[in-house]
Amino acid sequence: MQDLLYFSQQLINGLTIGSAYALIAIGYTMVYGIIGMINFAHGEIYMIGAYTALIAITGLTALGIAWLPLVLVVALVCAILVSSSMGWAVERVAYRPVRGRHRLIPLISAIGMSIFLQNYMHLAQGSRNVGFPILIEGGFNFGSDGAFQMSLSYMQITIFVTTLICMTVLSTFISRSRTGRACRAVSQDLGMANLLGIDTNRIISATFIIGAALAAVAGLLLGMYYGSVDPLFGFIAGLKAFTAAVLGGIGSIPGAMLGGLILGIAESMTSGYLSGEYKDVISFSLLILILLFKPTGLLGKPEVEKI
C-alpha cells in the first residue's frame, strides 16, 4: 500500500510537470512542422509569459483586487497577449527576413534571439529570481497519519485540467477550423499552399502566435507551481520541451503531448526512486535511445525522400 501510494505520488508529479512540458513543446513542434526550423527563442517566450503573469498579479494585488478567479483570468490574458505579440514579433524581426536561406541561418538567428531576450529580462527585471505568490493552496491527502501520505494539490489539478482544455481546443482548432485546415496544408506543402492562394505568411504568423499563447499558459502555471521566476526560467524548460517534442516526433502535435508526458513521468520517477540529480541524465538518455532506435520520434512520420 505504501509503495503504491509512493508510486502514485511520483506519477502525479510527473503528469503535472509533463503536461506543462507538453504545452511548451507544441510551440516547437508546430513551428518545425510548418517551416522546418527550431525556434530556440521559444523558451524565452514562455519565460516572458511567466513574468507578465507575475507583473499582472502584483499589479492587481497592489490595486487591492484579490478575488482569485479574476486575478488568474487577468494574469492569463495578459500573459497570453504579451507572449503572443512577442512570438509574432520575433518571427517578423528575426526569422522572416532569413526564411528560405540555408537552414543554419534561421537557427543561428533563433539562438541570437534567445540570448537577446534573456539578457533583456536581466536588465528589465533584474537577474535574481523573484517570488511568485502562491495563489492556489491546499489539496487532497491520501494515506494514514504517521506513514507516507500522497498529496494531490489543487495547483496540480489546475495544471492538469488547464492543459487538457488547451489541448482539446487546439486539436479541434487544427482539425476543424478553416485556419487549422490551412495550417495543415501549409505544413504539408508550403509552395503548393501558396499557389492555391493561401496567405502563407499569415499562417506562419498564426503558428507562432498559437505556440506563444500556449507557452504563456505554461508560464503562468509553472510560475505558480515552482513559486519563483528568473530570466533563465525559460532555458531549461525550453530545452526539456524541445526534448519532449523530439521524443514524440517533431512536427507532430499528438507527439508533443505524448513526449511531454513521458518526459515528465520519467523525470519524476527518477527523482522518486533514484535521486533528483539523475533526472536530467535519465531524460536526455531517453532522448538518445529514442533517436538511436526510432529517429523520427514516437509518433513522427519518416520524411519521404522525393525521387
Partner: peptide
C-alpha cells in the same frame, strides 16, 4: 495534400 481528405483538399484551395 496527401494527408488530408479529398474534400479538404478542395476546401483548402478556396481558402
Amino acid at each position: 495534400f496527401t494527408q488530408m481528405s479529398v474534400v479538404e483538399n478542395l476546401l483548402v484551395a478556396q481558402h
